[in-house]
Amino acid sequence: MNDPNDVTRRTVLAGGAAAAGAAAAPAIAREPAAPRKASSPMIPRMQVSLTVNGQAETLDLDPRVTLLDALREHLHLTGTKKGCDHGQCGACTVIVNGRRINSCLTLAVMHEGDKVTTIEGLGSPEKLHPMQAAFVKHDGFQCGYCTPGQICSSVAMLNEIKDGIPSHVTEDLMHVGFSDSEVRERMSGNICRCAAYPNIIAAIREVQGA
């Protein structure tokens, strides 16, 4: 952390929370939370093995754990965001076996053997995925909370067009092509509260043209 630019949202938030806690509410524990008890002794935990960003993972989970919570809370891949937790906002979008899905609306135990790609698996700060670079270049975000979902969704969405999957705005079902209106329609499952939509479309357009 010698490089002053080497600051992530997480370190800023963690530092800020710690400072606020120290000043205003010293009772807030800063120790790591105690491991959660198995919530019900009646429900056996289950093992699931899957590949996340190219790495084999085996998890021992309560069957209620969603794929989203498995990624964030168990594998500590916090790039994928929890927005609404009901499949309405798209912040939790990840790519499973090549398809974008809402990771909040699927159970981790249903993904035995699956290949999951999260925002962490698309690129890294040193080597951005072209879509990440385009979002930066075109200012495709303000607060950034929806951005990992937007980017995972965009990458998979372009492949859906390439695969000839039609959308609501496709005029001829047999001929599927790229257009701004196709992008707008196909990205409607990713909500941006800051309304960075025009810049998101510009970023996607650039990657499509590259």
């Binding site: 499949g87 798209g90 979008t93 398809r99 974008r100 899905i101 809402n102 609306l105 699927t106 969704s153 998979a156 969405m157 859906e160 959308s167 196909r186 990205m187 409607s188 499952g189 990713n190």
Partner: peptide, 9 residues
């Protein structure tokens, strides 16, 4: 109906 993500599932 729905969104691309939901239709995929």
């Amino acid at each position: 109906g729905a969104s691309g993500q939901l239709r995929n599932k």
